[in-house]
Design a binder for these strands. Structure first.
Length: 514
RNA sequence: GCCCCCAUCGUCUAGUGGCCUAGGAUACCGGCUUUUCAUGCCGGCGACAGGGGUUCGAGUCCCCUUGGGGGUGCCA
């Protein structure tokens, strides 16, 4: 499952003294979001192309939002995508721990430093007080910016309040000068000092906020390049201020365009609940949704790589290895993109015909397993035959719809009323009569192979001077319950002679009792 | 409200002053292939948000307007 075809990697360039190190830092609040998948992809591509390292770090500083098992789920879907990491959970590394919740001592140490050198101070407002201030400011001027207390609470005062059990936070004292962030995608972004506010770096529960933990960890883990979503753009100035206060270098930043739904709304996992409530099928939002829906990781990766990045030529099909060769931060765009599932579908269809059989087999087994489908117990040989019989399929779900009848008991086949009416019952039961004729012929067939079944059907068509559909469709409906299955020879061969005849008999029997 | 970012077919995008009567992909429409569903092949429809500049010449540079997005959390 771990991408064994280790992508051909250039050995790291001996000429560059500073190896490129990137990170992906999800917070464990659920499954891996498709936008997060693109974030790690771009980071991964940068690292792998340069022979650098990929760090995976878990940002679990919000105890209230922590979701059980989500780290496991995120890692599992990352592996399924074929994206690996050199340091982090399950990979080890010298610069850990890689869970922020296990790094509290480290954060506290730097916090002391900032408190001592005056770059940070204790703030004593309660959340309720802040809320009131915010509301008041909103009414009066439309926006709230935390006013720095004058004089600042002393460290002694802060400590005392803490001991008394009051909610005390630590805030970063922002500089009085403008800050310019050099963004490799957007260019220089300058924010004037009057836009800054002294933001919280340690919460009253003793945990660091995202900004603080992120800046310290990026520095300590020697991260050189930070590619993240544009929603973080305004955070960079805070991060740069913190880096300066702490004496850390600033990594290279790049803020990527954001991915939205086709209607312009945010792609949110809540979209799924909303759709269900409206009686609609839930849309795929998280990587796991796509996995469960029968998409191929190669197609997903290829598709999301093209959301906000392109090479400039007309080529659209890339393997992960090819993406790595072609990738360049310089060619990341600035424009937000909408996620078009129809186009993903076409990529998937393409990859379904392009991927070598063993890969397809691996993915199909994964699909059958995570969906707990009856076909999951099939042998590799059978899976391969199914894949071949369904050539041209778009997703594994389409394949499942096409051959699912093979894994249902003969007595449990449900007949689609529409199919029965159209193919069997119409014209005074012409289809049933045809079925009786063909059943007799099939029974005498000794060589039960797709080719000879097809030949038999063809011969019957010719002798009756009728179209293939008039013969094949009644059989198809009789054995599968629907009008869709692989070619008729293939369908019957896969089912086997006994089951074929049994199903035809049952179909005819049901007719006479209704 | 304030601050920041963005702006080419419905969608993803190519395009960095003349190669653009704007290219590709997808979607859609039509045709062909076909024993079902798909696939595949051929053809068609379809965009430079608006207004000012700059220039011999603007999708490409500048300004304004409009539109979209983001930030303004003891979330990340």
């Amino acid at each position: 499952m771990w991408s064994s075809s280790r992508l051909s990697r250039e050995p790291s360039m001996p000429s560059s003294p500073e190896p490129i190190r990137v990170r992906f830092a999800p917070s464990p609040t659920g499954y891996l979001h498709i936008g997060g998948a693109r974030t790690i992809l771009f980071n991964w591509l940068v690292a792998r192309k340069a022979g650098g390292q990929m760090v995976l770090r878990i940002e679990d500083t919000d105890q209230t939002r922590h979701v059980e098992d989500s780290v496991q789920k995120i890692l599992d879907d990352l592996r399924w995508l074929g994206l690996d990491w050199d340091e982090g959970p399950q990979a080890g590394g010298d610069l850990g721990p890689y869970f922020q919740s296990q790094r509290l001592d480290i954060y506290n140490q730097y916090l002391q430093q900032l408190l001592e050198n005056g770059h940070a101070y204790y703030a004593l407002e309660t959340p309720q007080e802040l809320e009131r201030m915010r509301e008041k400011a909103k009414k009066e001027s439309g926006g709230f910016r935390y006013p720095r207390p004058n004089p600042l609470p002393t460290v002694a005062q802060g400590l005392l309040a803490k001991r008394e059990g009051k909610p005390v936070v630590v805030r970063c004292k922002m500089p009085n000068d403008d800050i310019t962030v050099h963004d490799s995608i957007l260019g220089d972004i300058t924010l004037s000092a009057d836009q800054f506010e002294d933001f919280i770096i340690q919460k009253s529960d003793g945990f660091p906020t995202y900004h603080f933990a992120c800046v310290i960890d990026d520095a300590l883990m020697k991260i050189t390049h930070v590619l993240r979503g544009q929603e973080h753009l305004m955070n960079s100035h805070k991060h740069v201020a913190l880096q300066r206060a702490l004496g850390f270098p600033t990594p290279h930043y790049g803020h990527m365009p954001v991915i939205f739904n086709l209607d312009g709304s945010k792609m949110s996992k809540r979209d799924k609940e909303k759709a269900v409530k409206a009686g609609l099928p839930p849309p795929e939002i998280e990587v796991h949704d796509f996995r469960r829906a029968g998409f191929l990781p190669e197609a997903i990766l290829n598709f999301i790589a093209l959301l906000g990045w392109s090479t400039g030529d007309d080529r659209e099909t890339y393997t992960l290895d090819e993406l790595m060769q072609a990738f360049s931060i310089k060619r990341i765009g600035k424009t937000n993109a909408k996620f078009d599932r129809a186009k993903l579908l076409s990529f998937n269809t393409d990859w379904a015909t392009r991927l070598p059989l063993p890969k397809l087999l691996e993915h199909l087994k994964d699909y059958a397993t995570i969906n707990d489908l009856p076909m999951r117990s099939a042998t590799d040989d059978l899976f391969i035959r199914l894949l071949q019989a369904c050539a041209g399929f778009r997703t594994f779900t389409d394949l499942q719809k096409k051959i699912g009848f093979l894994f249902v008991d003969d007595e449990a086949i449900e007949y689609d009323p529409k199919a029965v009416k159209k193919v069997l019952a119409k014209n005074d039961g012409a289809g049933y009569s045809m079925l009786e004729q063909i059943r007799a012929k099939l029974e005498t067939l000794t060589d039960w192979s797709g080719a000879s079944i097809d030949a038999l059907v063809k011969a019957l068509c010719e002798s009756l001077d009728t179209k293939m559909g008039n013969v094949a469709q009644p059989i198809r409906v009789a054995v599968s319950g629907s009008t869709v299955s692989p070619s008729i020879g293939e369908t019957l061969e896969l089912l086997g002679k006994n089951r074929t005849l049994q199903r035809i008999d049952r179909c005819l029997a049901i007719r006479s009792t209704s």
